[in-house]
Structures are given as structure tokens and as C-alpha cells.
């Protein structure tokens, strides 16, 4: 079955992405300026990659969770916990600049994240609680945990090696971009070179049939929630090291919503099944470009969120085949017909 180009899952996010770049080209040509200074590249495009990397990393983990028909609302809290854990460890050390101390802090933060992911997974796969409720628990409790770790204060660190994670540069590019690329490649390798990806899609698409085919859905769900938490932990390290401090209250606030949005824009359905990591990456870039563009174009800050909402709505609507049909034919939009249409195209 040949799929027309506008039905390819990646077409519309990339088209909107291109449109945003075009807007910038017309109104703010300096958007594309890239300067080379002290061995570093600077410019809006580099900023997008840099600031977008925590979101991209969280969204990659979220993609796998959503593909299993789940959702993880706790990633924002995990971002805060991971940053708090690392900063606390470093602030307690004798020599903040010691590489061993920073490595210990990073390892500790990631281990705590993975353990909390295991908790999510156990609630979902073991206790059979709906994912949205199961992870809501940690979303709420996690903020509290982060504040307990920081004793309600903002912990500031002076560690140079720690600051490198979120603000360092490597071979002309921000280090966080390499981290995002590494997470993406690892996830892609894990899901496409082993059969994990196929099992995740099978569980998300048809849990009953998967069980009858002998798939160990429980351990796969545990692994997926743990990986998602690990991603959130890495994003937390980038976020907190970028500003050399841990803020239990505000670090990673609402990032779960942007991550879910990135996944959906990238063409992975919230009802589980087929997923696209590349699509998620495109979605995350689109969201970050949008945010940057809004600032660049000088949209008043009080209406930026509304503008953002409209663009996201437009992307979601234009991805729906039945909505596009109703535009061309002028017939009323019927969501019921769209379900059938989507399943026929696939």
C-alpha cells in the first residue's frame, strides 16, 4: 500500500518546523546567524539544540512508556529529585571540584531515579494501577521528596566539573547536545537491534494477544518505566548543572506535559502501539523552536503561552486525516470516521 507523502507520520511536524524557520527567515534573519567564538558555536539554532536537550531526553523515555499504552506524569518531579540529589551530594563534599565526587553524585542521582522508575513500574505492572494514577502519585510526592532533599532551600554548588554537564562545550557544541544524541542512539539501538521495540509495540497494541504469545509483559513494563525515569534523571542533571543549583520547587516543572506533547506531535498514538523515536525528536525540536521563535519575534510575554497553544493545536488538527478531509471537502468533521480512516492507512 503506497502512502501519500502528506500521510507519512513525520511530514506534518517537519512542515510546521519548516514554517517556523521560514517565519524567522522573513522577520528575524539573524535567527540563522551562527558565530564562531573561542572554539564555540553560538546562535539561536545552537540555543534551540542546547535548551531543547532536556526536553528531548525526557520525551524519548516518555515515547516508550506511551507505546506500552502507559503514561508517566512523574518525570518533572524526577528531574527535580535527580538535580537535588546530585547538588546535595556535591555540596556536602570537601572538594567540590573533585571529579570523583561529581561522578559519585551523578551516579547516585541516576540510581535514585532508576529506583523511583522501578516504583512506578511496580505500581503499573505489579499492582495493576492505571499508569496515569500510578505516576500521579510520584508526580505529587516527588516534589515533596525533592524539597526534603534540599530542605526547602535552593542548593547552590560551585563545582566546575558538575557545571560542565549542562553548560560545558565539547568540540564546538554544547555538551548537553551530545548527551541527548547519546540517549537517542541508545534508545534506538535498544528498541530496534534487540526485540524490545517489537515487544513494547505488541504490549501496547494488544496486551491479551501478547500474553498468549508468551511475552513477559511485566518485566518489559518495569524496564520501560525504569528507562523513562533514567531519562528524566539525566535531564535533571543537565537542568540543575546548567544553573549550578537545585530548585526542588521549579526544576522540571510541567516538563511532563511538553514531553507528552512532543511524543504526540511525533506521531506516536496515546493509545499505544507503533512508536517513532525520530518523530519524538522532531516534536521536541518543534516545541523548543516555537518557544525560541516566540521570544525572538518579540511576542509580549503575557500572550506567549496562548500563541504556543494555538500552534500546537494547529499541528495536532492538521495531523488528523479526517480534519484535513473536512477542510478540502467542507464536510463537518466526524471523529468517529477518523478512527476507521487512521486504521486503514496505518
Amino acid at each position: 500500500m503506497s502512502v501519500r507523502w502528506w500521510n507519512k507520520p513525520l511530514f506534518w511536524p517537519l512542515a510546521v518546523f519548516g514554517l517556523l524557520l521560514l517565519l524567522n527567515l522573513i522577520f528575524k534573519p539573524e535567527f540563522f546567524a551562527i558565530r564562531y567564538q573561542n572554539g564555540h558555536l553560538y546562535g539561536s539554532l545552537i540555543d534551540i539544540l542546547n535548551f531543547g536537550s532536556p526536553l528531548a531526553i525526557v520525551a524519548i523515555g516518555m515515547t516508550l512508556v506511551i507505546a506500552t499504552r502507559g503514561i508517566d506524569l512523574s518525570v518533572g518531579s524526577l528531574v527535580a529529585i535527580s538535580g537535588a540529589m546530585a547538588c546535595l551530594t556535591i555540596s556536602r563534599g570537601d572538594d567540590q571540584h573533585a571529579l570523583s565526587l561529581v561522578l559519585t553524585a551523578v551516579l547516585l542521582a541516576l540510581l535514585v531515579s532508576i529506583a523511583l522508575g522501578l516504583w512506578n513500574g511496580l505500581l503499573v505492572a505489579g499492582a495493576g494501577i492505571q499508569p496515569i494514577i500510578a505516576t500521579l502519585i510520584l508526580m505529587v510526592a516527588g516534589r515533596g521528596i525533592a524539597q526534603l532533599i534540599t530542605s526547602g532551600q535552593i542548593i547552590t554548588v560551585t563545582s566546575k566539573p558538575y557545571n560542565f554537564i549542562g553548560a560545558g562545550w565539547l568540540m564546538t557544541l554544547p555538551f548537553s547536545v551530545y548527551l541527548a544524541a547519546a540517549v537517542f542512539l541508545f534508545a534506538a539501538w535498544m528498541t530496534r537491534k534487540t526485540s524490545l521495540g517489537m515487544f513494547i509495540e505488541a504490549i501496547g497494541c494488544n496486551p491479551t494477544a501478547s500474553r498468549l504469545a508468551g511475552i513477559r509483559s511485566r518485566s518489559i513494563l518495569l524496564a520501560v518505566y525504569m528507562f523513562c525515569a533514567l531519562c528524566a534523571g539525566i535531564a535533571g542533571l543537565i537542568t540543575s548543572s546548567n544553573v549550578s543549583s537545585a530548585d526542588g520547587n521549579n526544576a522540571g516543572l510541567w516538563i511532563e506535559l511538553d514531553a507528552i506533547l512532543a511524543v504526540v506531535i511525533g506521531g506516536t498514538s496515546l493509545s499505544g502501539g507503533r512508536f517513532s523515536l525520530t518523530g519524538t525528536l522532531a516534536g521536541a525540536l518543534l516545541i523548543q523552536t516555537l518557544t525560541t521563535t516566540i521570544y525572538m519575534l518579540g511576542v509580549p510575554p503575557e500572550i506567549t503561552l496562548v500563541v504556543k497553544a494555538f500552534v500546537v493545536l494547529a499541528v495536532c488538527l492538521i495531523q488528523s486525516p479526517s480534519f484535513r478531509r473536512s477542510l478540502t471537502r467542507g464536510i463537518p468533521w466526524s471523529p468517529a470516521a477518523s478512527g476507521q480512516e487512521v486504521s486503514r492507512h496505518g
Binding site: 526485540s195 494477544a209 511475552i215
Partner: peptide, 27 residues
């Protein structure tokens, strides 16, 4: 509802049980 996985291809549906038996890492 209990047999095919609609989102997967014919190839993936055929090898699903065998692959599940081998475990996810021994692809």
C-alpha cells in the same frame, strides 16, 4: 482480540512467539 497484533507486520507477527521464547535480548 487474542491473536494478531494489528500494529505489527506479517513478519513480526510470525516470529513473535519464538522471539518471546528466546527473550528480548537474543534477537
Amino acid at each position: 482480540s487474542e491473536g494478531i497484533i494489528e500494529d505489527l507486520t506479517v513478519r513480526e507477527n510470525i516470529i513473535l512467539a519464538l522471539q518471546a521464547h528466546r527473550g528480548w535480548f537474543r534477537a
